[in-house]
Amino acid sequence: MSKISKEEAKRIAKLARIAVTDEEAEKIGPDLSNILGWIEQLAELNTDNVEPLANVANIDLKKRKDEVTDGDMQQDVLANAPESMEGFFVVPKVVE
């Protein structure tokens, strides 16, 4: 059964881009372990030779014609932006 350590919890939080304090990470570990442990009852089920099912929709993939039918709505696109300038979204500097 999965035992999520504090470090593991921090790694997952980092991957999910959610800030956690040490104190929170301490609690997240057992909480996730608890849920994952419960989920792991699936392991007892034999699923050899079963095709995974991603979506039940029983239709062909819908396709569009290659036509410009959208866009040209800069105002709408930026309407809810926390920060924008001269048509751009503005974010804290990205360091590469």
């Binding site: 866009g71 040209d72 048509g87 751009f88």
Partner: peptide
């Protein structure tokens, strides 16, 4: 093109 003019709600 001008920034964010060739953007649909899907692309954003």
């Amino acid at each position: 093109a001008e920034p964010n003019t060739q953007v649909s709600l899907v692309d954003a």
